[in-house]
Computed example of a mutant assay.
Amino acid sequence: MPLDDPRIRFTTALVEELRGRAREDIALLPFLAPLIQGMRDGFDDTPADAPNPPPPTFAETLPQVAVSAPLAECLPDMARLTSWKTVLSEHPDVDPALQKGMYAAHVYGALGIMGCERLRGGFFTLAPNIHYPLHTHVAAELYFCLSGALTLHHGVDGDPFELTAGGYSITPRERAHSLTTGDAPVLLYFAWVGDFTAPIFWWEKDEAGSWYRAQWLRGATGIWERGTREPVAEDLIAAQTLNRD
């Protein structure tokens, strides 16, 4: 790819953003190293879907983008090159506002426009005033906030913390976490490292105080589809209890 290709310009700017933060936080290195390797050795071609336009929330986030100018300038071109899809399929147990309020566009990996075996990453938009319930997945996850602000919880009893534009959070593998937006839409760069094929589990507590988890499987198009529901074992609940006496 030539250096003026929007995909290379975006990756170069993203690497520079993350590299600066990685000097203070080595936990970023697993998300950064595959991009550096791709810039050095080249990214594989992938049979990505034809571009699909972003949701209206993407354009709404652009005036509030708070990252370096080189990275911000790449976002409109990258949005046009990628294929935007809802994150979740429709299901009776899913709030329609949530199902219609989250979109993702993969840039890196098998579902993206730049092949990368060790990482999947791209854009994630969340509409205002939605809640993505407590969930777990095997892969570790990076959220780099490009625009807006949201509140995160880790564990079944974790204290809330805010992620704002220019900041990032890392969710360790199999750590339960949830996301809640405020009155403005949010634009994230997300990245996964680890097992990309394992299901996601949504955690929920019934009125009696018992925990259950519902399985979600990624379909052939990349959209997550609801599966079976089962009780959560006590040892799993204990592992997700962060505030211990």
Rank of each mutant, 00 (worst) to 15 (best):
M1P: 08
L3S: 15
L3M: 05
D4H: 13
D5K: 03
D5M: 02
P6T: 09
F10V: 01
T11C: 10
A13T: 04
L14N: 07
V15T: 12
V15K: 06
E16S: 09
E16P: 02
L18S: 09
G20T: 10
R21G: 01
A22F: 09
A22W: 06
I26M: 04
I26F: 02
A27L: 04
L28Q: 01
L29W: 10
F31H: 09
A33M: 12
A33G: 04
L35K: 09
I36Y: 00
Q37Y: 02
Q37I: 01
D41N: 12
P47W: 08
P47R: 13
A48Y: 01
A48M: 03
D49M: 11
D49V: 06
A50H: 12
P51H: 05
P51M: 07
N52P: 05
P54I: 03
P55L: 04
V67L: 05
A69C: 00
L71N: 01
E73P: 06
E73V: 14
L75R: 01
P76M: 04
S83Y: 06
S83V: 03
S83L: 02
W84I: 04
T86Q: 11
H91K: 08
H91D: 15
P92F: 14
A97N: 14
L98A: 08
L98S: 09
Q99I: 02
M102K: 11
M102P: 02
Y103D: 13
H106F: 14
A110Q: 08
L111V: 04
M114D: 07
C116D: 02
R118P: 05
R118V: 00
L119G: 03
L119K: 08
L119Y: 10
F123I: 05
T125W: 05
A127E: 13
A127M: 07
A127T: 05
I130G: 03
H131M: 10
Y132I: 11
P133I: 10
L134S: 09
H135F: 15
Y143P: 03
F144K: 09
C145L: 00
C145E: 01
L146R: 06
G148A: 10
L150K: 01
L150A: 00
H154N: 10
P160F: 08
F161Y: 14
F161K: 00
L163A: 04
A165C: 06
S169V: 12
P172G: 05
E174H: 08
E174W: 10
R175S: 07
H177F: 10
L179G: 03
T181D: 04
D183F: 04
D183T: 13
D183P: 02
A184C: 08
A184Y: 02
V186Y: 03
L187V: 07
V193R: 07
V193H: 07
F196P: 05
F196N: 11
T197M: 14
A198L: 04
A198H: 08
A198G: 07
P199A: 02
W203D: 02
E204W: 07
E204S: 10
W211S: 08
W211Y: 13
Y212T: 13
R213D: 11
R213K: 14
A214R: 11
W216H: 13
R218P: 05
R218M: 15
R218Q: 15
A220P: 07
A220V: 09
A220E: 15
I223V: 14
W224R: 02
R226V: 07
R226Y: 15
G227V: 06
G227S: 05
T228I: 13
T228N: 12
R229N: 04
A233N: 05
L236Y: 15
I237Y: 00
T241E: 03
N243W: 11
R244Q: 14
D245I: 07
D245A: 07
